[in-house]
C-alpha cells in the first residue's frame, strides 16, 4: 500500500497526482476571475469574529453567494491573477480553509494572501496554465508538496512553481507557528 492510499481522500480520487510521500487532495473546481479581493473572500461585515466556522459560512459570499452552502470538503478554488488582493485579513485564508477547500490554484497571488497561506498551511499553487485551463466543475487533484496538478476531467497535468527552500522550511514545519516555536526553543 502506498502512503497515498493510506490517507482517506475526498471524492474517491485517484493516486495520479501523488508524489513526495504526500497524498493528492482535491475535488470539484470553483472558478473565479482576476483580482479576487479579500472583501470578496470574506466581507468585512463578517469580520467581527475570529471563529473559523462562522467565517466559513460566508466564504466567497460577495464573489459567489452560493459557494459556502455548496462547497464540499476537498474542493479546489481556481483564480486568475492577483488572487487575494486587498486587505491583510488572515480570516480570508482561514475562511477558505475552514470551508474545506483543499487548495487554491491561481495565475498569481497578492503578496499578503500568499504569506498568510504559507503561514497557515493553506496549500496554494501558482500556475497560470492550470488557472486558465481548468473550468468550473472539473475534478481536480493537487499535490501541494510537489506542485503537481491533475485535471481528471480533461486528463491534463500541470506543474506549479516550486516554492523556495526558505518557504519549504515553514511549510514542512506545518506553518509559521511551529517554525517560530522551533526558533524560540533554539534561542533558549
Amino acid at each position: 500500500m502506498t502512503e497515498a492510499t493510506s490517507f482517506p481522500m475526498a471524492n474517491g480520487l485517484s493516486e495520479h497526482a501523488a508524489g513526495a510521500g504526500t497524498p493528492p487532495r482535491g475535488g470539484r473546481a470553483w472558478k473565479f476571475g482576476d483580482h479576487v479581493d479579500t472583501d470578496a473572500i470574506i466581507p468585512a461585515r463578517h469580520c467581527n469574529t475570529a471563529d473559523p466556522r462562522a467565517l466559513a459560512a460566508h466564504c466567497m459570499e460577495d464573489a459567489d453567494p452560493g459557494f459556502a452552502a455548496a462547497v464540499r470538503p476537498g474542493d479546489v478554488i481556481v483564480g486568475g491573477v492577483n488572487f487575494g488582493c486587498g486587505s491583510s485579513r488572515e480570516v480570508a485564508p482561514i475562511a477558505i480553509k475552514a470551508a474545506g477547500v483543499s487548495a487554491v490554484i491561481a495565475a498569481s497571488f497578492a503578496r499578503i494572501f500568499f504569506r498568510n497561506a504559507i503561514n497557515l498551511g493553506l496549500p496554494i499553487l501558482e500556475c497560470p496554465a492550470a488557472a486558465a485551463a481548468i473550468d468550473a466543475g472539473h475534478i481536480v487533484e493537487v499535490t501541494p508538496a510537489t506542485g503537481a496538478i491533475f485535471d481528471r476531467t480533461t486528463g491534463e497535468t500541470y506543474q506549479a512553481e516550486p516554492f523556495p527552500d526558505f518557504l519549504m522550511q515553514i511549510i514542512a514545519a506545518g506553518g509559521l507557528l511551529n517554525y517560530a516555536q522551533a526558533r524560540l526553543t533554539e534561542r533558549r
Partner: peptide, 20 residues
C-alpha cells in the same frame, strides 16, 4: 509592510519577520 495576524503573533514573540 502589511502582514497577517500569524506574522504579527510571531513578530510579537521573536521580534522578527520573514521577508523576501
Amino acid at each position: 509592510t502589511g502582514v497577517g495576524s500569524t506574522d504579527a503573533a510571531v513578530a510579537m514573540a521573536l521580534g522578527e519577520l520573514w521577508l523576501r
